[in-house]
């Protein structure tokens, strides 16, 4: 049994958050809602996404796992208007039937039996900040013109984003209480990340969204945010670039 009604906006958010990480996913549909955990093929970035059943107008599901092609789902949803309601169910041939207003698609599922659940590192990160995604995006955009990586350096009072290569460099200061809100701060933290991946993840986050980032010392970045009117929650992890001697 798999039958749901959900806003097209919500579905689009789900797949846009997943698409920077993987092409195909295993969606676990449970009694309380959906969950997807996926790691990119090179194991550099990871996503853990959940969508509560409150996000759905209708939610009739026996727990099951569905294999879906993310890219293609996004393509299919282009046919819908933003306020459309999407009706999805499984037909007897085990195809996903997606209907939105007067449009109906039948989509074969991807075989997800070989997809293993990624191992999620357990991270205790000393710094947690809340800010608007636009602030990060500004720093990332400019640093992409300078280098291929960016450094986050967080002290008590501010978060400094830097990027440098040869003689060029960029520095962006974000201040506590102004551009960001402190959630917790144990000690100063500094980590660098590949811009290629980071910019991809920011596409998944989207513009003008409240996010919480957690930073450690040469440790992965954790970035969390709510979507779909707080019925959805997503968490990205990104492996750092480490300075060795």
């Amino acid at each position: 049994m798999f039958e749901v009604d959900v806003k097209v906006e919500t579905l689009k958010s789900v797949f846009s958050i997943l698409t920077p990480i993987v092409g195909e996913i295993k969606l676990s549909a449970g009694e309380e809602g959906w969950n997807v955990k996926a790691v990119d093929p090179a194991h550099v970035a990871m996503v853990d996404l959940s969508l509560s059943k409150d996000a759905f107008e209708k939610y009739e599901i026996e727990p099951m796992e569905l294999g879906l092609n993310v890219e293609r789902m996004l393509e299919h949803l282009k046919g819908a208007k933003s306020d459309d309601m999407v009706h999805m169910k499984l037909d007897s041939d085990n195809r996903l039937v997606v209907s939105m207003s007067n449009l109906t698609l039948k989509i074969p599922l991807v075989d997800a039996s070989g997809f293993s659940d990624p191992k999620v590192p357990n991270l205790a990160l000393p710094v947690g900040l809340k800010l608007n995604s636009g602030e990060l995006q500004k720093g990332l955009k400019v640093s992409a013109s300078i280098s291929d990586h960016i450094t986050f350096d967080c002290t008590e009072e501010k978060l400094v984003m830097t990027s440098s290569e040869d003689l060029s460099s960029m520095t962006l200061d974000l201040h506590k209480g102004q551009e960001y809100e402190e959630i917790h701060f144990e000690k100063a933290a500094k980590s660098s990340f590949s811009l290629d991946y980071f910019t991809q993840l920011m596409k998944g986050v989207g513009p003008n969204r409240d996010i919480v980032i957690n930073i450690g010392n040469s440790y992965p970045l954790k970035m969390e945010f709510d979507f779909a009117e707080e019925t959805g929650h997503a968490r990205y992890l990104l492996a750092p670039r480490i300075e060795s001697n």
């Binding site: 194991h43 550099v44 590192p121 991270l123 590949s194 992965p220 492996a239 670039r241 480490i242 300075e243």
Partner: peptide, 16 residues
Amino acid sequence: TKYLNNREDTSLDRFL
């Protein structure tokens, strides 16, 4: 060189 230097990219496996 992009990779033979003291800035090493890592994968998440390293932090499991």
